[in-house]
Design a protein around this nucleic acid. Structure first.
Length: 397
RNA sequence: GCGUCGGUGGUAGAGCGGUCAAUUACAUCAGACUGUAAAUCUGACGCCUUCGGGCUACGAAGGUUCAAAUCCUUCCCGGCGCACCA
């Protein structure tokens, strides 16, 4: 890819905002200096997910332009818990968990950025500097920001209004994250739009302590124009550990509004190609076909060509042609009733639930297409394939 | 410690003596339809049931009452305010 084109993609694709401004970044890029850019990742989960790949792609663009990139593992900050995400508030991670997670991370991230060869990405841990700080150091650091600056943060404003508590350590979080920038003496940072505040704290600190202007690129979040995120319940949050079939299926269940953002944020489609996708949609083409294209591209980028193809075939077979594919669960009947089997195997959670499903006509014999009645469910289960709802299929042998 | 407000189902958040297994929204599941596991519409959404009903649940334990998520007492947990000086 040509350098100017790459530059254009770097500056625009998936970008929500550039601080202090775009011109500043352009100047930096044009200076010929080798810049150092990083993105931070919390090692709280055993796997990266599709959202992380947005940042990774952005880092890759810098890497391709010959700049130094750092994959920062927030092992120290993960211990405290980012108040941005209140559910993970006091989760503590052991050394061991972090190590295990890290291994997986490197492998997963390696699909998007290069960890070897020339200009390889570096991995750093913020525990290396944050863990060593003394209380006096922390105070010195804290003296660089005012309470007022902190209180401007949306989340804190909201909490004040709701009379919800704000703990002191929550003020420390942006400071810690901001200090990462200082410790690594970076030129820029990439992060999701929701991390803007924390990233700006780093900007402030870097200016105060090293008189350096750090640029910040925030990427758009993967959501449709109503702010509807993919998988509000994280049900369709694509994890990089998912099987290709799972990934493909999850993406197919994204709402249509995510098609264009999906292409922009999670694929290597060029701006022209994305415009093409938009036009197709406006022309009224079946969005399903574009979504399949999207699913294919994403699966491919997270795994490989072959896996993506297999995932697509499996999807078509299962959900479009409604055929069976091999990976259905086999359960031995052993003279039990269908009801007993379904409950023992945790396919339904209770007799009441099963009853409702049967009443709704959701339990069918796959071959005869006949609905199973309540009486039948209490008789000895006949061998065969049963379908419970649209996604649960079992074979009794 | 004092004052005050609160602790409700997966989440948010109503209810404040009977009509409450508990409004509503979101999430979830199912049905119809289709263009897909999208959208939309419809329904379900504690457990058990011989489908009559039964049982367990609104922080915990007691109590008042024919009747309590709702009132009282104690306890546990949380928010906010107060605490010195003014």
């Amino acid at each position: 890819m040509e350098k100017t084109e790459l530059m254009d993609i770097l500056l625009h694709k998936g970008v929500a905002d550039i601080l202090p401004n775009k011109a500043f970044l352009e100047k930096e890029l044009a200076s010929g200096r080798k810049l150092t850019i990083y993105a931070g990742f919390d090692p709280t989960a055993p796997t990266l997910h599709i959202g992380h790949t947005i940042q990774l792609r952005k880092l890759r663009h810098f890497q391709d332009l010959g700049h130094r990139i750092i994959f920062l593992v927030g092992d120290f900050t993960a211990r405290i818990g980012d108040p941005t995400d209140k559910t993970s508030a006091r989760k503590q991670l052991t050394e061991k968990e972090i190590k295990t997670n890290l291994k997986a991370y490197k492998k997963q991230a390696g699909k998007f950025i290069r960890f070897n060869g020339s200009n390889a990405a570096q991995i750093k841990f913020n525990n290396d500097w944050l863990g060593k700080m003394k209380f006096a150091d922390v105070l010195a650091l804290a003296s660089n920001m005012t309470v007022d600056q902190m209180l401007k943060r949306d989340m804190f404003v909201r909490r004040m209004e709701e009379e919800k508590p704000i703990y002191i350590h929550e003020f420390m979080y942006p400071l810690m994250q901001g200090y990462d920038s200082v410790a690594m003496n970076v030129d820029g940072e990439v992060g999701g739009n929701d991390q803007l505040f924390n990233m700006l704290a780093g900007r402030t600190l870097l200016k105060q302590l090293k008189n350096k202007e750090k640029f910040v690129i925030t990427t758009k979040l993967l959501e449709d124009n109503n702010g509807k995120k993919m998988g509000k319940s994280e049900g369709n949050m694509v994890s990089l550990l998912d099987s290709p079939e799972q990934m493909y299926g999850k993406i197919m269940s994204w709402t249509d509004g995510l098609i264009v953002p999906g292409f922009e944020l999670c694929t290597d489609y060029t701006p022209d190609q994305i415009i093409f996708v938009k036009n197709e949609l406006e022309k009224g083409i079946n969005p399903r076909d574009l979504k399949m294209r999207l699913a294919y591209e994403i699966v491919k980028s997270c795994t490989d060509d072959k896996s993506a193809q297999r995932a697509e075939e499996a999807f078509i077979a299962t959900f479009q042609k409604k055929e069976l594919h091999e990976s259905i669960t086999e359960i031995s009947g052993n003279g039990k009733t269908l009801e007993e089997i379904l409950i023992e195997e945790n396919i339904v959670s209770s007799k009441s639930e099963l009853r409702r499903l049967i009443e709704a006509g959701a339990v069918t014999n796959f071959e005869t297409k006949e609905a199973v009645s309540i009486e039948e469910s209490k008789e000895m289960a006949k061998n065969g394939v049963y379908k419970i709802g649209k996604s649960r299929i079992i074979r009794i042998v």
